[in-house]
Design a protein around this nucleic acid. Sequence first.
DNA 1: CATGAATGAGACTTCATTCAT
DNA 2: CATGAATGAAGTCTCATTCAT
Lengths: 215, 215, 215, 215
Amino acid sequence: MQHSAPENNQKVLGELMAAGLLTDPATPRGRLLQASAHLFSSKGFERTTVRDLAAAVGIQSGSIFHHFRSKDDILRAVMEETIHRNTALMRMAIEGLEDPRERLLALIRCELQSIMGGTGEAMSVLVYEWRSLSEEGQLLILGLRDIYEGVWLDVLQQAYETGLVTVEPFVLRRLLTGALSWTITWFNPQGQMSLDDLAEKALEMLTCSANKHPI
Amino acid sequence: MQHSAPENNQKVLGELMAAGLLTDPATPRGRLLQASAHLFSSKGFERTTVRDLAAAVGIQSGSIFHHFRSKDDILRAVMEETIHRNTALMRMAIEGLEDPRERLLALIRCELQSIMGGTGEAMSVLVYEWRSLSEEGQLLILGLRDIYEGVWLDVLQQAYETGLVTVEPFVLRRLLTGALSWTITWFNPQGQMSLDDLAEKALEMLTCSANKHPI
Amino acid sequence: MQHSAPENNQKVLGELMAAGLLTDPATPRGRLLQASAHLFSSKGFERTTVRDLAAAVGIQSGSIFHHFRSKDDILRAVMEETIHRNTALMRMAIEGLEDPRERLLALIRCELQSIMGGTGEAMSVLVYEWRSLSEEGQLLILGLRDIYEGVWLDVLQQAYETGLVTVEPFVLRRLLTGALSWTITWFNPQGQMSLDDLAEKALEMLTCSANKHPI
Amino acid sequence: MQHSAPENNQKVLGELMAAGLLTDPATPRGRLLQASAHLFSSKGFERTTVRDLAAAVGIQSGSIFHHFRSKDDILRAVMEETIHRNTALMRMAIEGLEDPRERLLALIRCELQSIMGGTGEAMSVLVYEWRSLSEEGQLLILGLRDIYEGVWLDVLQQAYETGLVTVEPFVLRRLLTGALSWTITWFNPQGQMSLDDLAEKALEMLTCSANKHPI
DNA sequence: CATGAATGAGACTTCATTCAT
DNA sequence: CATGAATGAAGTCTCATTCAT
């Protein structure tokens, strides 16, 4: 049931918090992560100073280091939590859906929300600031990323097998990753085209939509 | 004639050099631009120091500033020349082609080469380091970018009108920009899949060609 | 009362500090300003490096920028505080004096002390490093300068009207500015001639006092 | 005869050139010195780059060093020639004059012309850029300076003995040096007050003018 | 836990000077 | 003599990080 999503989301995210995989946005650490995700996403990691981060949550720059060991540590945490959150959200989104097309659309919509959403769901950071992460950080995140990508590959594999898409899942997912994350640079959620419209168009690009909407 | 491309490319690029729009890679300035494109592309603009750039061409850091006013100026020049070069290459690539599918494939292949090519054809810099460019620089490049994108939109419009693609050119181009530029992070030209294979797959994603060209 | 000057000075300068127009020399910022005034005065602004300034107060060069935005900002602050301090000191010096000659002598003595004094009263910086100040800085200081010069012009006007001097106040003040500020290059306060002697001679130059006070 | 001054000046300066003490302004070296005097005077030595100097005479920066060993050498030469020229001009100016007042006025007028004159007669450089000169340079110039100042002291001594001025020559000269050189910062030769007017006023300041223009 | 002054390495940039052409 | 690319030392300034309070 699509309409029950928000409540379910809250519940699942709450479980992640309880498990220590996600930080409560009500805590200083949580506010810091949220602000960091936003700033890293909009200005880029290198161009964001710890003073920017501190100012964004109303503390002094020195206090940042009571919550995180280093700036790099903040980036790592943002990415880690983003993956945890989005993996959970994606699983929720396809839960109960059977139709390959609907499942694929759900994932696309979910990822677009993660990219565009201003509430710390900073998928774009994960994509565009990857190189800014230290090597240790990259190794740490890589494992989580595989789990996240596993969800995608499952759904794409199903779509491939049913003929909905014709490009192999592995390649298709990577092309799609680029296509979706790039939307942050040009898509305006307040514009004429809604985020759902955009998701539909992205799906249309992947699938042979000509069959579905014959002219 | 596809086989005559290399020679023609040389000729056209030579003309651009003569017009002052492109720097001869044999000159110090040209070598610097090439090295910069490579480093900006692989490490990112902010993480590349002017000492890195100087070392890459075997000069001292201070000598950089005989050729460029500032580090930002180098980025601007890399972008500017990249657009000039790629606009010319794209026009060459579709010259004489009539079939919408072939034309679209040619553009995709051309852009992929620009993204992956290590010889200063740093399309990815243009895409990923955009925010690193100063505002004045951005304004300067924007005009050129429109010309470049104009070529794309023409070809996509034709594909749209003939039913080859079903997503509007404007949106489709932006999704494609992301998909193609992102390939730099994962595609290995020396791997099993060739760059031409990749181009075919990207086209297939857009057009659902499987239905039209059944195997 | 001449003998009460030192105490009054302390009081008035204390008020300026309370008003935020003067920095307490006991604070790091105050020590920095004092050292800067001294170095700018003795070596010149351009030949003084921020490392010199830092070394003079025993901190690292980077720490300077916690107190001032830029080197130019330091110069601006030195000038600003110098004007505030000296305007106050001049007003104090002529307070209660009626005789035009005594008033003029008081101002001259006061300015000489400001020029020669090593405790941040760097009038000479204001005069000789003016061109080193950025244009914005110059505009900022100009207003304050007018107030300071206003005190001088009042006293000179009175001297002019009473026939004590015969050159118009406007021209005379400028000639005097040069004459007095230049003393920093040749006058030795520890030498035979005292600072008060020098003030007397300067006054004598202006007023041809010999005729009025025959020996 | 005042009206014969220009011709005489030419002749004497020509002799200095022949003696190698002055460089012909028609030569590259001469043009360079003239431009340097002008730029040092208006922008200051430190803020004037060798590129500025080169540009001012239409050559490349590297070519400067065929004429001078270093930038410091240029400053030294400017000062040296300025003293030679002005010593000669001053001697010419008082030649044949007997009256102490006329002699003093002649010197003042002469020095003002040297300060304001745009043709390399950069007395102000000598005064304001003194600290920029290397120590060796300062030693070299000091001797010449004494000769120049000797002319002044002679005239001031005579004025002192005749009661025209009442301050000792030594002190008076130094006060006057400051007063006159500072005029470069505020006096506009194209303004209402002519340079001769200014000279008169400066003299009036020094002498007991009240006697001459009784109210 | 929070503060904010201090650190110090390192960034970009300038500029007098050299030297092969 | 002139050029102009190259040098390299030194300049100002930034910023992640530390630590005494």
